[in-house]
Amino acid sequence: MDYGGAIGLGLLAGILARVLMLRSDYRQYPTYPHGYSTHLFMGIFASLAGAVTVPALLEGEWTAVTFFLLVAEQFRSIRGMERDSLKALEDSELVPRGTEYIENIARVFETRYYIVIVVAAATALGAIKQSPLMGLVFGAVVFMWGAILTRVETIGETVEVEAAPVIVRGSDVLVGDIFIFSVGLKESQEFIKERALGAILTPKNDEGRDTLASQGQRQAMLHDAASILGVRRDADNPEFAPQAKRDIKTGRVAVYVVPMDKDQGLLLEMLRRAPVLESARGRARFVRLGYVGKRHLHAGRNRIGGNHPEGGLGGRHR
């Protein structure tokens, strides 16, 4: 295939990859039409850069490398752009995303552009060296590889999510047996008794325990839950703000929300589907001492743990 055709095909494949990764889901971004178009156009540029690089390099135009690095630098600023715009919204959110969630979203956006560049380049390479069809196959393979590499774990994989009653005892509010906070106003106590929902999250293994320990992760879950169930609060009644409190004895986490939609099943599903933030992923499995320590020092601890090589409930090892 001639260079012009290959560049065109690479460009199309890259744009397609960007569109496929531009889903808007309950994580609410980019649901803004302008955010959408920004990313679509940036995707076209990324794709073009990827597709043009291949014929340039094949022709021995080594200056292309310099320009390619310049392009990569451009797309690094995507992370900053996403971070800034989400941070700017943070002050007026009733349930903020939290800095860790924002950082996670920003990182995802940046990575997606690199995948677009590589998909476009692979398609162009296949089209020049073999045939247009092979080009598309190359592109698809690289896209899938990117998707596997950036797969997001969900909370439900390492954590058991169960419904729990919200109990108001005097001025104390509890979810199951975990204390959340105290409310002094009788009116609010009645309101909470009537409308609050609770859930208890129990770690299935050490990764789950580490994930739940992260404050950023808990805020992210609350944001996700509130974005679908709605939240029955305004700036002047903080007692209805959703909360996730950790029971330090067991590592379990109690979630308390006062939603607009009192739907227990939906709350549990939202919590299970919440993404595990990169910064909150359990580190136990990556640390050799974690295995050794568990085998020798805490042999009896495997009810929650059990992430050692001999088996148990442990997570997948990568």
Binding site: G170, S171, F181, S182, V183, G184, L185, S188, A235, D236, N237, P238, E239
Partner: peptide, 9 residues
């Protein structure tokens, strides 16, 4: 409501 704070007993 005025101070946008939570009441504790």
């Amino acid at each position: 409501r005025i101070l946008q704070g939570a009441v504790h007993d």
